[in-house]
Design a binder for these strands. Structure first.
Lengths: 211, 211
DNA sequence: GCCGAAGGTGAGCGAGCGCTTAGCGTGGCC
DNA sequence: GGCCACGCTAAGCGCTCGCTCACCTTCGGC
């Protein structure tokens, strides 16, 4: 495995849908650079250099630097939404499904920290149209989690006073993992996922065991 | 109250220690600009313009643009630390002190969202020396919260499996308020503070009422 | 074996960046 | 009232940015 593949490349299977090969390499290079330095501090020369190409090559595959961020953001949000949908629609109690949703969502933010960082924190760097599109995806993400919590509250499984506020807090907790998680730190993504699932079940006042 | 004072200026009393007047106006302008666009996307011309001065005036009071960020970050972290210390050292049970710490910390992140955003999310834009100084302050912040949780766990007031992990999660939850809180949204900083204090007490398995 | 499309390069454009410098207005001090 | 220190501005320096353009290589189809 090459050096590049040890960071965003470790998450590279997620970018399998991007073709041709050069376009995918540029996209992965952009994810790494944006995550490290932020969108505005990243130069097109840096992105092209990481992908082993000249600065001009970038513009064969992408119209602007912003298009790169837009593509990354959309693919990332779609992946996040898919993760939550899978957990939300499996069979089981609200408790089981919430635990599943939180642990897999957290695993994605921790394990794919490089990607998640860009997806969650560089939203403001997009133009108005692209931002609006991404915000629509975020509302769907919100809806999936709120759905589970609402169900658990209605059935008496959970004890929640403010469903909207609690949903916000749960998502916020998961998303912020991308900010602090350290690959070289003491915890694996799986461990953080388990810890957070437990904490979230406490937050919603879930009765009894999760599984 | 002027337009400028409605954003970072609403938090302006916090910058009272900065003199002379022109230096303070530049600092407040920088806080607003950094919070809106991010450090790297903010130009020195923008900062000076917001303060009603020419671009060159900035360099009479500050050596570089980075010095502005450094000063903002240090003052902000000192304020955050002071808030947590006050809550941590008051008298009362661990439950009461944790609720107090979380609600006041959250109030600061929500009410002073403009400042908090810069303080919490622009850390990576600092140079190595400045960043190291700020990271030392953050470790102290961490220590204050961990102290309360440890005490509650030791006395049996709380039921916590992983003290370090839970501390991380509690701080993460509070800090991320600066990312999503919207002044025009449905919640006041006080309401979010109360909600979050309740959620955190559930996370640590606190027995009985908070106050 | 020639040809055009696809995908790449090297050089460089105009613009805007952080920051500097020479000089101007003004208020306090003798 | 003369003078100078201080706070500020207008102009612009050197540099790097996002992006473009003229040209080059490679390769499948006939």
């Amino acid at each position: 495995m090459s050096t590049a593949e040890e960071t965003a490349g470790g998450e590279a299977q997620a970018w399998g849908e991007v073709t041709p090969d050069a376009a995918r390499r540029l996209l992965i290079a952009a994810v790494e650079a944006f995550a490290e330095r932020g969108y505005h501090a990243t130069t097109t020369r840096d992105i092209a250099g990481r992908a082993g190409m000249s600065p001009a090559a970038l513009y064969i595959h992408y119209k602007t630097k912003e298009e790169l961020l837009h593509r990354i953001s959309r693919i990332g949000h779609e992946k996040a939404l898919e993760i939550l949908r899978t957990a939300s629609r499996r069979e089981g109690s609200a408790t089981e499904r919430l635990a599943d949703a939180v642990s897999s969502f957290v695993r994605w933010h921790a394990g794919g920290r490089t990607t998640a960082r860009v997806v969650q924190y560089e939203l403001d760097s997009l133009g108005p149209d692209a931002r609006a599109e991404i915000l629509a995806l975020r509302r769907q993400v919100d809806g999936e989690v709120r759905g589970i919590i609402e169900e658990g509250a209605r059935s008496g499984e959970f004890e929640v006073v403010d469903v909207h506020g609690t949903t916000l807090a749960v998502l916020s907790l998961c998303i912020d993992v991308a900010r602090w998680f350290n690959v070289d730190g003491p915890r694996t993504p799986e461990q953080v996922g388990e810890l957070y699932a437990d904490l979230v079940l406490r937050m919603v006042g879930a009765q009894g065991p999760a599984a």
